[in-house]
Design a protein around this nucleic acid. Structure first.
Length: 592
RNA sequence: GGGGGUGUAGCUCAAUUGGUUCAGAGCGCUGCCCUGUCACGGCAGAGGUUGCGGGUUCGAGCCCCGUCACUCCCGCCA
């Protein structure tokens, strides 16, 4: 018995045809005589009917069917009697009257029901093969495949080569913690699993590949989040002979192609672009959610001579005063204000100044210090109205960004829950953030660090500042942000050996021998005619999660790990045999 | 590393301030009945050391301490 159709395929036009279906018993409805079964496969459901008057032997066999039995049936498609259509199913106009039934396998009662009801996540992970049978999860897997195919189609059409890079890589202790792999044949030596194929893709550019992409597994041994797994997937891209704008345009094409393939939607191009400094000043975040307002407004000038000492002294010491208007949150309880204050404090604020605009009055412990001119500035710039809650930040510039940026999101969540703010999930606010600072200074170490990675080139106009004012240097980095989430990030790379050496040794102060040990091959490669190049990488899981309408990337990964990086289905990681350790020249030193 | 949440029947959950039926409901499961259901229906039934360990108390699902698991967030993620 070979199946002729899948379970979401048959329509009224197929009536009269002899068909064969195979799948799982989703639901059984036994009326004593006639028996209905919803047969489920990856694609959907079809109602099959066992009628004792039509075929007694198969009807008798069907008595034993239970949830999740695997069956194949042969029968004829017929339209359902008038009035018994099921408009909820694509196949709801027809049913298959079964001639013959073959039970391919029985099933124990599953630990949870295979339907829309959500079991606990640990149980779902333990029985992931059952969880993935649920139509919602099957849909996610299918969409993930579609997106991957769209990616490959797009890059193929644009003359990119998909090249695989090694999983056993060299340890590079900068950045994320790595998974180490001991080498049996090289005692005491280790590989590391790649955090990304960054260095290999640059080598591919030196190799003349010109346009490379890969749907690449990456590994980071860091703590997990709803949107972070220890192993995850990137769409990794690198191009030669390109400028930043070439890369951005190519990626806009990719994203548009994906949205077309996955959702049938046409995205307006090009995407908006904003400089890092501007997004920080306006949103207090380098990945702003621009679907709603409540932007940060600057009052540094207005309060530089204020009678309110907290503001004045912030300005005096080179800081800023900024505020945001939480529209409609004046009704916040004292408890909520305290929570907001705690939030502010947890991000480094000393306190949280606020004004509630209620019953035509400004209710606030600080408003008595404000001059008429200061009040006027607030009203005008923040468009203050009845019912507003104004929140202030006064401190060092970066600190105010951070505090108000976080508060903006917290406040938006509160307003969303109370229905005072609507943020649509199907609104796609893509945004390129550009002109990031190349370096940051870590005073505790007295050193500069690359904000992205040490291969990012400075924008050409700023190169001369590297020696004199490194913090002013803008990197040629770009991030693609969607609705407050970072979707992709990349840069134009350094391709000249002298510049890369200067970056390692003079700017980042990596000792020459260390730089040579870690990146020597790169510096050498660049001496043999490395083309100018740049690239980007997308977080594939997050991208797919967004398209699936979930914020949890576990929902779009077939076999994800728990928050403790455990695989509950296979019980991994696990202990190993002493012999395996001996082979690897490893001795354990466990506490307690 | 830190903070919050959750843990009661196979699943999802309920159980006033610790106090008589406080061990319950729905779904699922088992048996019987039922020929047009699709949340099928009817009748009957099985099923729990309340995550685990300890403590307080006359008495603990409920309070305290510890521990484990899952989860969310901060740190971390060049």
């Amino acid at each position: 018995m070979k199946r002729t159709h899948h379970c979401s395929q048959l329509r009224a036009t197929d009536v009269g045809h002899k068909v064969a279906l195979a799948g799982w018993v989703h639901v059984r409805r036994d009326h004593g005589g006639i028996v209905f079964i919803d047969l489920r496969d990856r694609e959907g459901l079809t109602q099959i009917v066992f009628d004792p008057q039509h075929n007694k032997p198969s009807w008798e066999l069907a008595q034993a069917l239970r949830s999740e039995f695997v069956v194949a049936v042969e029968g004829v498609v017929r339209s359902r009697p008038a009035g018994t259509d099921n408009p909820k199913l694509p196949t709801g106009q027809i049913e298959v009257l079964v001639h013959t039934l073959e039970v391919l396998n029985s099933s124990e009662t599953p630990p949870f029901q295979i339907d829309e009801t959500q079991a606990g996540e640990d149980l779902r992970l333990q029985y992931r093969y059952l969880d993935l049978r649920r139509p919602a999860m099957a849909k996610n897997l299918i969409l993930r495949h579609k997106v991957a195919k769209a990616v490959r189609d797009y890059f193929d059409a644009n003359r990119f080569l998909e090249v695989e890079t090694p999983i056993l890589f060299k340890s590079t202790p900068e950045g994320a913690r790595e998974y180490l792999v001991p080498s049996r044949v090289n005692p005491g030596k280790f590989y590391a699993l790649p955090q990304s194929p960054q260095q290999f893709k640059q080598m591919l550019m030196v190799a003349g590949v010109e346009r490379y992409f890969q749907i690449a597994k990456c590994f980071r041994d860091e703590d997990l989040r709803a949107d972070r797994q220890p192993e995850f997937t990137q769409i990794d891209i690198e191009m030669s002979f390109v400028t930043r704008d070439d890369v951005l345009a190519m990626m806009e094409g990719l994203v548009a192609h994906i949205w077309q393939a996955a959702r049938g939607e046409k995205l307006p191009l090009p995407f908006q672009r904003m400089a890092y400094k501007d997004v920080m000043e306006r949103f207090g975040s380098d990945k702003p959610d621009t679907r709603f307002g409540m932007e940060l407004v600057d009052f540094t000038e207005d309060f530089k001579a204020s009678a309110f000492k907290v503001f004045r002294s912030a300005v005096d010491s080179g800081g800023v005063v900024k505020a945001l208007n939480a529209k409609g949150l004046a009704g916040a309880t004292q408890g909520q204000i305290e929570q907001l204050t705690e939030t502010a404090k947890s991000f480094g604020a000393k306190g949280l100044a606020y004004i509630k605009v209620e019953a035509g009055e400004w209710k606030s412990p600080i408003v008595k210090f404000f001059s008429e001119a200061e009040k006027a500035a607030l009203i005008q710039k923040l468009k203050i109205e009845e019912g507003d809650l104004i929140l202030f930040g006064a401190d060092k510039r970066e600190s105010v960004w951070e505090v108000l940026g976080r508060l903006r999101l917290v406040v938006a969540d509160i307003l969303k829950k109370t229905g005072k703010l609507t943020v649509r999930d199907d609104q796609w606010n893509f945004l390129w953030v550009i002109d990031f600072p190349l370096l940051e200074y870590r005073p505790e170490e007295g050193k500069y660090y690359a904000r992205q990675h040490p291969f990012t080139a400075a924008v050409p106009e700023d190169v001369h500042l590297l020696d004199t004012d490194p913090l002013k240097v803008r990197g040629s980095q770009y991030d693609l942000v969607l609705n407050g989430q970072e979707m992709a990030g990349g840069s134009i790379r350094i391709h000249r050996p002298d510049m890369q050496k200067k970056m390692f040794e003079e700017v980042l102060k990596i000792p020459a021998d260390v730089a040579k040990a870690r990146f020597g091959y790169m510096l050498e490669a660049f001496r043999y005619g490395a083309p100018p190049h740049g690239g980007i990488a997308f977080g594939f899981d997050r991208l797919v999660a967004t398209l699936c309408g979930t914020s949890n990337i576990r929902d779009v990964i077939a076999f994800p790990k728990t928050a403790k990086a455990f695989d509950l289905m296979t019980d991994s990681p696990s202990e190993v045999e002493p012999k395996q350790l001996r082979d690897l020249h490893i001795k354990l030193d466990l506490e307690s």
